[in-house]
Write a protein that binds this DNA or RNA. Structure first.
Lengths: 166, 166
DNA sequence: ATAACTTAGTTGAAGATTCAACTATTCTCA
DNA sequence: TGAGAATAGTTGAATCTTCAACTAAGTTAT
């Protein structure tokens, strides 16, 4: 009780356990995805997402800002990632005709090939870990919960949860 | 349908949308937690978890390997993190009497004070984002789902989801 | 009792992300 | 129209994580 007065706001056990399970998941899952993708295809999960977004976009092209938005990355991170992908010839940057400040990122043939080659194993792993272990009901519960959390994380609705990336 | 033949294993829309929502969450939530904690208390979320585990342990002491297990970190990561925390005098390393290979990490008075000072704002944010927006039913759905996923991520049950860290 | 193996932890380099500062356009509106 | 603000993107340094190689101590089995 003394402690309660000093620190009145620990989480109750009913809240704590789900929260800790989420903390565990956000620690382990990203590491697992990166590990699978770098082992099998030598790209990070973020690289995979970037290439996914480009692959599904018209002309395999997106403005860099749009790409950052769709992958929930910062512009700075995107700039560094594109540097690396461009060095590997998976992506190129081209001037944007409509706005001289802007650039388009374009997925190259090699980039598309790399992405396509990486997808089967990656998706197999996504299925193995996630989709095939959850019922349809759980999948829709998960979606609902995540939408709620994302909306609170990002009051201005900037967080993207777009279709692509299959 | 053509596409299905070429790439037979894209996720179906019912699977894709929940999965993408989870990808968005694991991208945004860790960044958000780090950002809140570094802004308000100049520690990372991982630092916070490390100090939480120590704070709740008997004698505020844990073997380094055990600490790594409870925070789902690698030993190498833990070693680097402890270097930094030790430099700030939040933690110290002491020899382990039972096993000369091992060391104990101990949370210092300053470490405890820092952790205690950081907790209220952090937990307020956890509440704001997570617990107060989910019903009890959703919290238990989330727990169930996360347990399922964690068990698949970690066949040998190494992933920890222990009590502490309030 | 000792060679081979496993466990505990550290180290330093390489890679990735963040942060703040910066350039260069475009927009706003008085 | 022109000054100030906002937007698009880059850069380099600092920080953090990963990876592989390493030391040292404990364990096993012969």
């Amino acid at each position: 009780m003394k402690n309660r007065l000093v620190h009145p706001d620990w989480l109750s056990p009913e809240h704590l356990e789900p929260w800790m399970s989420l903390v565990a998941l956000i620690t382990v899952l990203p590491a697992h995805l990166d590990s699978q993708l770098t082992r099998d295809s030598n790209i990070t999960h973020f690289d995979y997402m970037v290439m996914s977004m480009l692959a599904e976009a018209p002309e395999r092209t997106l403005r860099i800002t749009e790409l950052a938005a769709r992958t929930n990355g910062t512009l700075s991170r995107m700039s560094h990632v594109l540097d690396r992908l461009e060095k590997r010839a998976f992506v190129k940057r081209v001037a944007c005709p409509e706005d001289a400040r802007a650039k388009n990122a374009v997925l190259t043939r090699e980039g598309l090939a790399t992405w396509l080659a990486s997808a089967p194993k990656h998706l197999e792993e996504v299925r193995r870990v996630v989709t095939e272990n959850l019922s349809f009901e759980q999948l829709s519960q998960l979606l609902e919960i995540n939408k709620t959390l994302l909306s609170k994380l990002d009051p201005d609705n900037l967080v993207q949860m777009r279709k692509p990336a299959r």
